[in-house]
């Protein structure tokens, strides 16, 4: 897939599909989500446009070599922390894709369905594979204020992935389905715990 991704293309994806991505990926974690939403509320303009591109839950290791920023390591961070911001974020900024790890909850799933967005799970810890998919660093914003992991890094990605669609735009949430099964298994396994003398 290539960004900007048109909404009909997003709606064609199904939970369980494997995806590689080309185009613009912007990192944003807890602080960046918070700041972006606060700025929007105040009517201020953001330094980047999230429309149709991918938001990446990641706090990378970057190094400046001469005038250029180089991505050393960029794997996903735990997306659950952004659940409190994401539905509002999707509604206001209309990204086509959220990339992260560990999955997200009902509010994000609902926003994905409503506004045509998908959540792609990228392998947690696969930071060098992530960095390999970054062809170029196009920009960085809020670095001084938020620090290296929390600021906005704008990447030009090439063959970034593979990632798995775990929340599609039809209301499916694969991680939630797995965890419901885990919960049932847990109850059964607890009943079978062995006695210890």
């Amino acid at each position: 897939m290539k960004t900007p991704v048109p909404e009909p293309e997003i709606r064609k994806l199904n939970s369980g599909d494997l995806v590689y991505l080309n185009g613009t990926i912007i990192t944003a974690r807890d602080e960046a989500h918070k700041k972006a939403l606060e700025m929007k509320k105040k009517g201020e303009d953001l330094p980047v446009d999230f429309k149709g591109v991918a938001v990446f839950h990641a706090g990378p290791i970057m190094r400046k070599e001469g005038e250029e920023w180089v991505t050393i390591a960029a794997g996903p961070t735990t997306s659950a922390r952004m659940e409190m911001f994401e539905d509002e974020f999707i509604r206001l900024f209309r990204p086509a894709i959220i990339i992260g790890k560990g999955g997200m909850g009902d509010r994000t799933t609902k926003a994905c369905k409503e506004y045509g967005c998908v959540y792609l799970a990228f392998t947690g810890g696969a930071a060098l594979l992530g960095a390999k998919g970054v062809k170029k660093v196009k920009g960085v914003y809020w670095l001084e204020e938020l620090g290296m992991p929390e600021c906005l890094w704008v990447y030009e990605a090439e063959n970034f992935g593979p990632m798995t669609v775990t929340i599609d735009a039809h209301g499916n949430n694969m991680t939630k389905q797995v965890m419901e099964r885990v919960s049932k298994n847990k109850e059964e396994l607890i009943k079978k715990l062995e006695e210890v003398d």
Binding site: K101, G102, G103, A121, T123, G124, T164, T166, M174, T175, Q177, V178, M179, R181, V182, N185, K186, L189
Partner: peptide, 9 residues
């Protein structure tokens, strides 16, 4: 439990 690699079952 069935969590699996990266919790994908």
């Amino acid at each position: 439990l069935g969590i699996g690699v990266m919790g994908l079952g």
